[in-house]
Write a protein that binds this DNA or RNA. Structure first.
Lengths: 202, 202
DNA sequence: GTCTATAACGAGATAGAC
DNA sequence: GTCTATCTCGTTATAGAC
């Protein structure tokens, strides 16, 4: 009936292409010309949909963060087990890497100093939200005895986010997603409480 | 007597400035103009010392990797205890971050896809060398009973490198080196073997 | 909503004087 | 070893036609 509240078809395609380029080459390593060429449109047409590179960048983070938030909701709906949630969380990162991409916000974190202020704020918010969700999972897991308990959950959450982002960063050098999985599994294993069934595993 | 084998005074100053800029803003976010302005010389003078940006980039990684290798030698000379070595290794990263910098090669890892091939090779070598050193430390530590033993040491080494690089990446967003230290301490704690003196810590 | 055309700038790089 | 001057290219961005 009325105009769709969704971004126009073209705008959404622009975001798709720009997202992939930025995840692969970084915000500074990406240009309007690259995206326009891939889309088969002109740079001027890009400027119609997104006034400038800064606005495009903001839109990229917003959409990425929303998608991520929905994925976290889906995890919450799927299971109540903390370790299952952590495994699913790590798998989100693995999926990104398997598409030969770096996490969008991990990439932007590296370029943080050179980003326009609104993008900086959005990147920080992304990580804050992730840490908050993870901290909640960890606290629940501790109460249930599924997660090893020590220190501030928020600190533990930050360590997890950093470890996963870093594992992506270095795994990508060898184009080897298996390296990421190895690292993620190790991280998760270090978080699991020694199960009552196999303490000491003698 | 003869010309110094060391890089000329100016070339070395160029590397100092360029290194700081690249660690802060990335290789793509840094320009000859930036460095020349800070040095009070012209872009043309820069081209005399380093033919192009790619050559400057290679020189940056080479010097950085050599410095890092010397730091690892110093650690080896200072202690034989594996956990002490790991703590000292993490402290190397903390020192970089405290200067408001990202690890040079961590930054370049993010921009990997856009780097000239020789720089790509040098970045990969940096991480391979780090992983090899860490794997050796972990194996020694296992033999001595100081390090928790599970799986391939090389995989464990990769997890450590990734976790430290990632912790730098996200800590830098809040300009808060304490966040890095928290994460590094957690990582190290997860690697330490349960000491014979405090098993279960009842 | 997309185009052509072009402006305005900064990038990396080069030639040749000093 | 450093300079001035210039070149060429790619970048973001804008004006205005269609």
């Amino acid at each position: 009936m009325s105009d769709p509240p969704e971004p126009s078809d073209t705008a959404s395609k622009v975001l798709d292409v720009a997202e992939r380029l930025v995840q692969g080459r970084g915000f500074n390593g990406f240009s309007y010309a690259d995206a326009a060429a891939e889309l088969g449109i002109t740079k001027a047409a890009l400027h119609y949909h997104f006034a400038g590179k800064a606005e495009l960048g903001e839109a990229l983070i917003t959409r990425y963060a929303e998608r991520f938030a929905r994925a976290l909701d889906a995890i919450d709906a799927r299971t109540d087990d903390a370790m299952d949630k952590l495994r699913a969380y790590a798998a989100l990162y693995g999926d990104v890497l398997r598409n030969e991409r770096m996490c969008l916000c991990g990439m932007l974190a590296a370029e943080y100093q050179t980003l326009p202020a609104p993008m900086q704020g959005a990147v920080v918010r992304f990580f804050d939200d992730n840490e908050a969700w993870l901290a909640g999972v960890l606290e629940d897991g501790r109460r249930a005895g599924a997660v090893r308990s020590d220190g501030d959950a928020r600190d533990a959450a930050r360590m997890i986010v950093g470890a996963l982002e870093g594992a992506m960063l270095v795994s990508r050098l060898h184009a080897d997603p298996a390296r990421f999985s190895e690292a993620a599994d190790r991280l998760l294993a270090s978080l699991a409480a020694p199960g009552p069934a196999d303490v000491g595993e003698r």
